[in-house]
């Protein structure tokens, strides 16, 4: 009884594994979209710590070269 059900499970195991297990491509897609969604907010958050001059100087950097909270103290 147990062997027959186990055997039946292995015969289906490939399709079940694909559904029940983790699909790496779907996860990668989800992470990519989430990163795209998170990035504008992250960019804005990090820009808030940049001094004004750094906002308008090329090259643009993700992290501020000098961290300042002057924006927050003014606000």
């Amino acid at each position: 009884m147990t062997t027959s059900s186990a055997g039946r499970r292995t015969s289906h195991s490939r399709s079940f594994a694909r559904v029940r297990g983790v699909n790496i491509w779907l996860t990668a897609l989800l992470v990519l979209i989430a990163a795209l969604f998170a990035f504008p907010m992250l960019w804005f958050l990090l820009s808030s710590f940049k001094p004004g001059s750094e906002l308008f100087s090329l090259p643009l950097t993700l992290f501020p070269e000098t961290w300042t909270t002057s924006g927050y103290s003014t606000a």
């Binding site: 779907l26 989800l30 979209i33 989430a34």
Partner: peptide
């Protein structure tokens, strides 16, 4: 996005 978020095959 909703399909990805409700799918059992994704993490995070």
């Amino acid at each position: 996005i909703s399909l990805l978020l409700t799918s059992a095959a994704t993490r995070f």
